[in-house]
Design a protein around this nucleic acid. Structure first.
Lengths: 157, 157
DNA sequence: TTAATGTAGGACTGATTCGGTCTGATTTGA
DNA sequence: TCAAATCAGACCGAATCAGTCCTACATTAA
């Protein structure tokens, strides 16, 4: 759990590609061929991102998609939320904000802090950063999180 | 997407409850009644946490579950991973580490940094912190168990 | 004008997972 | 012994995910 859908993955890959060719455009087929992604799925994702305002579409022959803003003005959070919908750490965080256990559960507030932290991480990752292989990663992580030795990425059991 | 399952939620609620009564125990029924959680589901979750080594079970009448370690030695990450399984931000982060697009996708490394950050956030939230947020039940805590005021997760210096 | 290219969008399917129910076995204390 | 409680597994309906198929619309090039 706690992972992105494949659609969000595909969306990020496509956005990264479009960032590298920015401000030019690329067709859905170009991208799906290049990365071996299923073309119809990718097409839908790109349409979603158009509706979200992050891409502009160009119809007709030699058409395609291009970023509607600069790569540094679009974040990973934008893309993920646009494709996967709102991000909630727990079911408590609905729009209505009403959770049937709300009165008693009281884990809501601590989790909200984690929740905001996750969104913050995604929000700091711009397309420009995603597309740059250079890696001043330190700027991304809150101080104190980097050096912890038990932060193994692959938590195999 | 990108949210915890209800089981993880229930597990955290139960762990928080058991933290407030620590080092005493509580039965699954006590907890499910108190928070209105489905009892059989909660029972399974607690069994999982026993296998994970975070709870000890006491059979028979007046039995129940209690924390097997101090509340500051169990983190939200422990509980979530134990219940929901390994946490991967993207499908790329499997145990094998092989992703069919691996050669070309190149969003792997930036996402890995976000992934590490998320795990770091969860790892810094101990049960003691989870239970310490203002709540009437906190008065049940033995003196000295409420952790230090240095509880902010984000931007901790 | 016509054909090719490409986007837009809905309907549908198969697989997987999630949340939850049900049933029964085992262990312990009164 | 009996009741309370944990332990353990099978099972099911609903939801979601990933992907395919089909059709319609828009633009450009020949």
């Amino acid at each position: 759990m706690l992972k992105l859908t494949k659609k969000a993955d595909y969306g990020l890959i496509a956005m990264r590609h479009l960032t590298t060719v920015y401000p030019r455009s690329a067709s859905a087929k170009d991208i799906s061929d290049h990365y071996g992604l299923p073309a119809p799925v990718l097409a839908k994702i790109l349409q979603t991102l158009v509706r979200g305002g992050f891409l502009a579409s160009e119809h007709g022959a030699n058409g395609g998609y291009r970023l509607s803003r600069g790569p540094e003005q679009i974040t990973a959070f934008d893309i993920v939320r646009s494709i996967d919908g709102p991000i909630f750490l727990t079911a408590c965080f609905t729009e209505d904000g009403d959770c049937e256990h709300h009165k008693k559960c009281s884990i809501r507030d601590p989790l909200r802090r984690i929740h905001e932290g996750i969104i913050g991480l995604l929000n700091k990752m711009t397309m420009a950063e995603l597309a740059s292989d250079a890696d001043p990663a330190s700027s991304l992580l809150p101080i104190g999180l980097i050096s912890s030795p038990n932060l193994t990425i692959l938590n195999r059991q």
